[in-house]
Design a protein around this nucleic acid. Structure first.
Lengths: 345, 345
DNA sequence: CGCATAATTGCAATCGTTTGCAACTTTATC
DNA sequence: GATAAAGTTGCAAACGATTGCAATTATGCG
């Protein structure tokens, strides 16, 4: 017997917190309320309406935690962003953010909530198991393999509802959605060579497997066509990029006439540096980027780039995840890149 | 007696799913396991170590849902992004994404998970109550007031742990973190006028209260200095923006010598359109943006803009929310904007 | 050794919802 | 009007972890 009961005699609109409170008011059992509110069950229409009315009136919402515990499902999907290679690369990276935005749009549409987790694998060995085992999510989307390929493979064997954004390797065990990076690299190099370049450079880190594949694709073409190509490593975080590119440019000035940038972000910085040095693009040097970020059409000159269809990627990730949640063991999805020719080549 | 019990005699490594399973193996009670795993309680060191060892060995993780139900707290913070004015404005908007990135960094650091929810208020009257009442989150950060000012005010009266990104109005009841938009508008107009502009335009929708405040600030200055200023409405979603700006430019050609864009995104599109028309910036027309997005330093010419310190904003949001979670009724935080002078003025 | 006190541990209730089953009402059918 | 079938509802046992309280064991001290 609480204070409230003692002081307030009867039917004052006490706060309706639980389904049982509501049941008491409606004069039915908790089970019936539960069924009425969940909509689909067998409960008399009049009863249902009465219960719904009371619920609305008191602004009642069933406790999700209890519901999820009982039903053993959460209605939430985890989105993990491992920041492996470059700890200074914040989650605020343009490409990831765009993908995340589309994921959010997609998942919301399908009625799932999104549990976002930023992960630094080097500080937490166990990140993926923890996330999955947390009991907070029904499935997980991993955005970017980073340097965690093996760990992801390990988990994939015992956990179906996981889809990963990244690069597809022959014979891998986890389900991945991503662009055909190698083909993308090919397209980029072909374009540069077709535009008359004789000596290429790949601007970007070649460690992450996506980038490695882009470089490999370009290299294939270059070698076949008898054109030289070299890799110039760069970090991803924006503040470092500028200087690094500047150094590279000094070094290669005059020796290189075509640049394939690992990402548009790098390409844009590069355009900037070139302009500051008075080097004309595309007359003196041609550039192809990768991603086709929204910025890329706004640069001067507009950037020729290899487009990744991020929206389609997000749709694919969500679609495959939902099918896996339903128990299907889906194949990976490799999306074709598309060369967007603008002014920088 | 289950099948498993009958078929498998003894100590086969059956899957340890619950704290009770683990307790059985360790030969103690569930309560003890719970205490051991939660670390801080009074449990014999040796017992604790044994339990921890078994837990590790079986990769056991306590079910969060059950824990959260019992403890009545979730360890997750909701981040809601209401898309009011412009349904076509996706969550993928650059400014929101950047803020979200910083929020994710901050909250992760403080040990909170992030429940992301994209909301279209016109389709769901009740979005905020639902989110709060879902029992999934301990508190909520609302990113952008959109046209939901009143609804947010209503909720604020009865729900402490909520912080909102947006504009501060005299006497408002909800706790807000945001830039002083009016002052920002002032700075922008002052700069344009100081650079010699005689006739200004504000490029952007003036409905959202943040933008309205920016325009108001600019107007104050313009009127005081005897300079004309007019508003040219634009949408936010990128695809529409281009055409709209083009139309405006046609209309104002020659009559205007300074543009204050409501956001950098608009300013960047505008730069592009101007260039396509052969109008020189800053010689013929000067532009100031708002936000200082990463792109803005990369445009040609680099954009003069009013900087919002997004990282500081995110820190503020998280800090205030944590204090509110602890029961404190915090004041709003208004951040000073900073004029960044680059090449477009 | 006996008793008081402290340190551990077990017990059982609890968090709020869902759901199989049984019980009870209607309605339909002959 | 009796009987079967269908439609509704209530009951109570889960879901899995936490925690106040009681019970047990270990330790200290005279």
């Amino acid at each position: 017997m609480t204070d409230t009961d003692t002081q307030i005699p009867d039917d004052l609109p006490q706060r309706v917190r639980t389904i049982t409170d509501l049941a008491k008011i409606a004069g039915v059992s908790a089970g019936t309320v539960s069924r009425a509110l969940s909509g689909n069950s067998l409960v008399n229409t009049k009863t249902r309406q009465k219960i719904e009315a009371i619920a609305r009136e008191h602004g009642f919402r069933p406790n999700q935690m209890a519901s999820k515990l009982r039903r053993q499902k959460t209605g939430a999907v985890g989105v993990a962003i491992p920041l492996g290679h470059d700890e200074r690369q914040q989650i605020s990276d343009a490409f990831f953010m765009t993908l995340l935005g589309h994921l959010a749009d997609q998942l919301t549409e399908k009625g799932y909530d999104i549990m976002l987790r930023r992960v630094i694998p080097s500080q937490d060995e166990d990140w993926l198991d923890r996330f999955i085992g947390s009991g907070m999510i029904d499935g997980v989307i991993v955005v970017g393999q980073s340097d965690q390929f093996e760990r992801i493979e390990d988990v994939a064997d015992g956990y179906l509802p996981m889809v990963v954004w990244g690069n597809h390797q022959e014979g891998q065990r986890h389900c991945v959605v991503g662009t055909d990076n190698r083909l993308g690299g090919k397209l980029a190099a072909e374009k540069l060579i077709a535009s008359g370049c004789k000596s290429l450079a790949f601007l970007g880190d070649t460690q992450p497997i996506e980038f490695a594949a882009r470089f490999a694709g370009a290299k294939d073409v270059a070698e076949k066509m008898g054109v030289s190509i070299r890799a110039l490593p760069t970090h991803l975080s924006r503040d470092q990029t500028g200087e690094e590119i500047a150094e590279h440019l000094l070094e290669i000035e005059g020796k290189i006439d075509g640049i394939f940038a690992a990402t548009d972000t790098i390409a844009v910085s590069c355009l900037k540096e070139l302009r500051d040095r008075g080097i004309d693009v595309p007359a003196q040097l041609k550039i192809v980027g990768f991603d086709d970020l929204p910025i890329s059409s706004q640069t001067i000159p507009p950037l020729t780039t290899v487009r990744q269809d991020i929206a389609a990627g997000a749709r694919g990730l969500v679609d495959l995840l939902l099918r896996r949640l339903a128990g299907e063991d889906t194949e990976s999805l490799v999306l074709p890149p598309q060369l967007i020719v603008r002014g920088s080549t």
